[in-house]
């Protein structure tokens, strides 16, 4: 047979493409459920690490099914809010049907374009509320979770992840536990511009709403700073109001003590 004729070439390539496409479509379909299960468990691990349910290392050593169970045991409620701060949906927290908003990219776009958003809030039984953040680092996307104490302005914990920051520099936002721990106890200043800062020499100034940027990773720190502030701004009306009353109460108490 002449394997170099035009007709043969065309038929051959078509056949190869059809076979390959069929094989791939089949595997993609078959593996989709376990892939989404992995993605979901990953989101839960990062969220619960921020909320301080368990340490990051422990969570990453836990099996998917147990991670789901852990979440179902600890979650109080989960819902979504709009930019006006009002609740606009609920997320199921039942073990069989855990709902998350784990695709943050379109939400980030919607925040910037001020179109309809469904931003998730996860409230744990300990009273800690978790919100996600998302933005661009030096090479690719960065995202993470920030957990608040019940007063809604003291940070209880944070977790950050990235797709392709420089190992040893920008990748520290994920790899170094001390960086995440620096956020604990810091306070977000709702309504201020910016509400939170990543800058130099924070330890010297002692600012409450700031954390030291990572040395040598200027662009990643800048990206994380922007991601935090864009998302804090989006949650401002939701968390900010409650935090405002909380602060008032705190002041009253101190005033009473003074009397």
């Amino acid at each position: 047979m002449n394997t170099n004729s035009n007709a043969y070439t065309v038929i051959y390539t078509t056949l190869v493409v059809v076979v390959v496409a069929a094989v791939l479509a089949f595997t993609a379909m078959k593996l989709k459920p376990s892939q989404s299960a992995n993605a979901k468990a990953e989101t839960l691990r990062q969220m619960m690490s921020a909320a301080g349910i368990k340490s990051t290392d422990e969570l990453y050593a836990t099996k998917n099914a147990d991670v789901l169970q852990l979440y179902a045991d600890n979650i109080e409620q989960a819902y979504t809010i709009g930019l006006d701060g009002e609740q606009n949906g609920t997320l199921s927290t039942e073990l069989k049907n855990i709902e998350l908003v784990d695709n943050l990219k379109p939400q980030n776009k919607a925040i910037k374009e001020n179109t309809g958003v469904t931003l998730p809030v996860y409230v744990f039984k300990s009273g800690v509320a978790v919100m996600p953040i998302y933005g661009a680092g030096l090479w690719g996307p960065i995202w993470g979770y920030v957990a608040f104490q019940p007063d809604h302005y003291t940070i209880a914990g944070a977790y950050f992840d990235h797709e392709s920051e420089t190992p040893g520099l920008g990748a520290k936002i994920k790899d170094e536990a001390w960086f995440r721990e620096k956020f604990i106890g810091k306070k977000v200043e709702w309504g201020a511009e910016p509400a939170f800062k990543l800058e130099k020499n924070v330890e010297a100034t002692g600012a409450e709403n700031a954390v030291d940027a990572i040395t040598g990773a200027t662009m990643t720190s800048k990206g994380l700073n922007e991601a935090l502030n864009v998302w804090f701004k989006a949650y401002e009306k939701h968390f900010g109001l409650g935090a405002f009353f909380g602060m008032l109460e705190e002041h009253e108490i101190t005033n009473e003590e003074e009397e």
Partner: peptide
């Protein structure tokens, strides 16, 4: 693509 899909689906290899 097959390798990539399988890695994404495996519980230990996803990360």
């Amino acid at each position: 693509i097959l390798v990539d899909q399988v890695l994404k689906a495996g519980e230990g290899t996803y990360a």
